[in-house]
Nucleic acid binder design. Structure first.
Length: 164
DNA sequence: GCCAACGTTGGC
DNA sequence: GCCAACGTTGGC
């Protein structure tokens, strides 16, 4: 069963366009240091869709769609003393933090702004839009995915992983 | 820049 | 185990 997730990113740090420039349009997604978000990361399965959401900008939006191409593995940055995400309490024998690899599917024909999502009645229950929601990795319901894609000028079949 | 919401830390 | 203090996130 293919699920959908929403990954937050500050585009100044890493944007959907950055993902498109990576080799094979694939990038490890790590540095998540919140247990609830980590648990979501560990649930992500091969081929799950990912909405890439740009936060902390004037107009926060979903910029594009990616997919999981490697499921959770120990996050190397946790063991890297030079990394800002270094966690001395994470033991390589029992890793605390995990990363996944994501590959771009495509940019949305038009970005779906937070404002547009908030204005849509079908998205009233969307996790992302709840007050005080700070999790950087969130599940997205199937019907919510359809609405977001429609707002972005796409339909669900446009993001079916090709190998399914 | 403000501030609400929330997570983490550490004293007790 | 409680809870105050503090730090961070992220929309506005």
């Amino acid at each position: 069963m293919t699920r959908t997730w929403l990954f937050k990113s500050e585009p100044d740090e890493f944007s959907f366009d950055d993902l498109l420039t990576r080799p094979d349009q694939t990038e490890p997604w790590g540095g998540v240091r919140n247990y609830q978000a980590r648990n979501h990361l560990k649930e992500a399965g091969l081929g799950d869709r990912v909405l890439i959401y740009h936060s902390s900008i004037a107009e926060p939006c979903v910029a594009g769609v990616a997919e999981i191409v490697r499921t959770a593995y120990p996050d190397p940055s946790a063991f890297d003393e030079a990394s800002p995400y270094h966690d001395p309490k994470s033991d390589p024998e029992a890793p605390r933090w995990f990363a996944v690899d994501v590959r771009a599917v495509a940019r949305l024909p038009r970005p779906v702004t937070r404002t547009a999502m908030k204005a849509h009645p079908a998205l009233a229950e969307m996790r992302l839009l709840r007050r005080g929601m700070r999790l950087s990795i969130l599940p997205v319901e199937p019907d919510e995915l359809e609405v977001v894609l429609a707002l972005g000028g796409w339909e669900l079949r446009d993001v079916q992983p090709v190998d399914l």
